[in-house]
């Protein structure tokens, strides 16, 4: 009985409905949270005693960095599910998530680099976290490049899944090696986000931003998967019916 949910999840039609019911409120809630978090972080949160106001970049840097990493984990979970249970929808998740992950990774890198200017005095420092982030960006770009090189087929799904899994096994190794390399080449001064103990006035808005970003991401993935479903199930009768009725009302 418990597993009916799981099998339903494999059904694109079921997911199309469920995602359709939830993406809108998720998006609205995320926009509200992101606005609250941004204003709170920029206006009301206190200044950092060491970094001054430049510390406020944290409210953008940390959520995007967390999301960039957990997005890859989500893709890896989807890849494993796709390979083991042959779920078609798993690949659609990867298809929807990869560009988002790349975008968030880029944003985390960008904010990190800009934050580095007032903190370290240069736009780019070969800091362990930033470098690992850069490698992560290339992993995302690799997944996207592989997908675009193969035409839509069973093979593309499996190739992507294998590549994502290879990547996820490598991520901890890469992280460890980059951290090791960093201690070798430059004695750790102080990392951007490492703080002894953040007072609640500082971390509560950060939490709001993180939750908001997660909801934002979820809503985007839902919409992306819905689009993928429409595309791939285009010849199915339920899609025909759906579009025939929808065509008269909205689009």
């Amino acid at each position: 009985m418990k597993w009916t949910f799981f099998h339903k999840l494999g059904s694109p039609r079921w997911f199309y409905d469920i995602a359709g019911r939830h993406y809108a409120w998720l998006m609205m809630l995320s926009v509200v949270l992101l606005c609250i978090g941004t204003i709170w972080g920029l206006v009301f949160a206190p200044e950092d005693y060491q970094q001054g106001n430049s510390f406020r970049i944290i409210y953008l840097h940390v959520p995007t960095a967390i999301l960039a990493q957990s997005c890859y984990m989500m893709m890896a979970t989807a890849a494993l599910t796709g390979l083991v249970w042959k779920m078609k929808i798993a690949d659609m998740f990867i298809a929807a998530a990869a560009p988002l992950g790349a975008a968030f990774t880029f944003l985390a890198l960008f904010t990190g680099a800009v934050w580095g200017k007032p903190t370290w005095g240069t736009w780019w420092v070969w800091d362990a976290r930033l470098t690992a982030m850069l490698v992560l960006l290339f992993l995302y770009l690799g997944v996207m490049a592989l997908r675009s090189a193969i035409e839509y087929s069973d093979m593309r799904e499996k190739s992507t899944a294998i590549l994502v899994l290879v990547g996820v096994i490598n991520i901890p190794i890469i992280k460890y090696s980059v951290e090791w390399w960093n201690t070798l080449h430059q004695p750790a001064t102080f990392t951007l986000t490492e703080k002894p103990a953040m007072p609640p006035e500082m971390w509560v808005p950060l939490l709001v931003m993180v939750i908001g970003s997660y909801l934002f991401f979820t809503s985007l993935v839902f919409q992306g998967v819905r689009n993928e479903i429409l595309q791939r199930e285009a010849r199915k009768s339920w899609v025909k019916k759906l579009l025939a009725t929808e065509g008269s009302t909205s689009d």
């Binding site: 920029l42 970049i57 995007t64 944003l107 904010t111």
Partner: peptide, 16 residues
């Protein structure tokens, strides 16, 4: 102005 850090903060939030 953000205590002199305005450029960096607004650049980040703008691009973000």
């Amino acid at each position: 102005e953000m205590g002199g850090h305005g450029l960096y903060i607004w650049l980040c939030y703008g691009v973000g």
